[in-house]
Computed example of a mutant assay.
Amino acid sequence: MEQNIFQFIWFLLWGVLWVVYFMLDGFDFGVGMLLPFIAKNDTERRIMYNAVGPFWDGNEVWLITAGGATFAAFPTTYAVMFSSLYTPLLLILFALIVRGVAFEFRGKEESFLWKTVWDICLVVGSFVPSLLFGVAFANFFKGLPIDANGIMHGNTLTLLNPYGLIGGLLFVLMFVVHGAVWLCVKTNGDLQKRARKVAEVFWVLEVVLALVFLVASAFATDLWANYMKYKFLLIIPAIALVAYFAIPAFLIQGKNWYAWFSSCAAIVFTVAFGLAGLFPRLIPSSLNPEWSLTIYNSSSSPLTLKVMTVVALIFVPLVIAYQIWAYKLFSEKVRPAFLESEEAY
Rank of each mutant, 00 (worst) to 15 (best):
M1A: 13
E2Q: 09
E2D: 09
F8S: 11
I9K: 05
W10F: 14
F11S: 12
F11M: 08
F11N: 06
G15H: 14
L17G: 14
W18K: 03
V20A: 14
M23Q: 13
D25V: 01
G26H: 04
D28Q: 06
G32P: 08
G32S: 04
L35G: 15
I38K: 00
I38S: 00
K40W: 03
E44P: 03
R45Y: 04
I47L: 04
I47A: 00
M48G: 08
N50K: 12
P54W: 10
N59H: 12
L63S: 06
I64G: 11
I64R: 03
G67H: 07
T76Y: 01
T76G: 15
T77F: 02
T77M: 07
Y78H: 04
F82C: 03
S83R: 10
L85Q: 03
L85H: 00
T87A: 13
L91E: 06
I92G: 11
L93G: 11
L96W: 01
A102C: 10
A102V: 15
F105W: 15
G107C: 02
L113R: 14
K115Q: 12
K115V: 11
T116M: 05
T116N: 05
D119S: 12
C121N: 05
V123K: 01
V124W: 00
P129D: 07
L132S: 05
F141S: 03
G143L: 10
I146W: 01
A148I: 07
A148H: 10
N149I: 14
G150L: 11
N155Y: 05
T156S: 15
T158Y: 15
V172K: 02
L173G: 12
F175M: 08
V176S: 00
V177L: 00
A180M: 03
L183G: 15
G189A: 00
L191M: 05
A199S: 02
V201A: 06
W203N: 07
W203V: 15
V204W: 03
L214W: 11
V215S: 10
F219C: 03
L223E: 10
L223C: 05
A225P: 13
Y227P: 11
Y227T: 02
Y230D: 09
L234P: 01
A249F: 13
K255V: 04
N256A: 09
W257A: 09
S262K: 03
S262Q: 01
N288P: 07
I295M: 14
N297F: 05
S300T: 15
L303R: 09
L303E: 12
L303H: 11
T304A: 06
L305W: 02
L305Q: 06
V307R: 09
M308E: 12
T309H: 01
V311G: 02
L313A: 13
Q323A: 00
I324S: 07
W325M: 06
E332K: 10
R335P: 04
A337T: 10
F338A: 09
E343F: 09
